[in-house]
């Protein structure tokens, strides 16, 4: 029994996992706005915001 019979399905399954992640990204609309996120990473002070958020709501 060659290792090929195990390795190939595993390789394809790993690839399929990647595919699944990609499909999820598409479905949740993560590719819709590539513009805002690239700025958001530079500007947002998220930790502070979320603290306030939990306090106020």
């Amino acid at each position: 029994m060659s290792v090929l019979y195990i390795a190939l399905p595993i390789a394809i399954l790993l690839g399929a996992a990647g595919l699944w992640a990609c499909l999820r990204c598409i479905k949740t609309g993560q590719y819709e706005d590539l513009e805002a996120d690239s700025y958001r990473i530079l500007l947002d002070d998220q930790p502070e915001l979320s603290k306030h958020d939990t306090k106020s709501s």
Binding site: A36, Y39, R40, L42, L43, D44, L49, H52, D53
Partner: peptide
């Protein structure tokens, strides 16, 4: 981006 930052700081 500054506009979006300002609005997102609202909550």
């Amino acid at each position: 981006a500054a506009c979006s930052w300002l609005i997102e700081s609202l909550p």
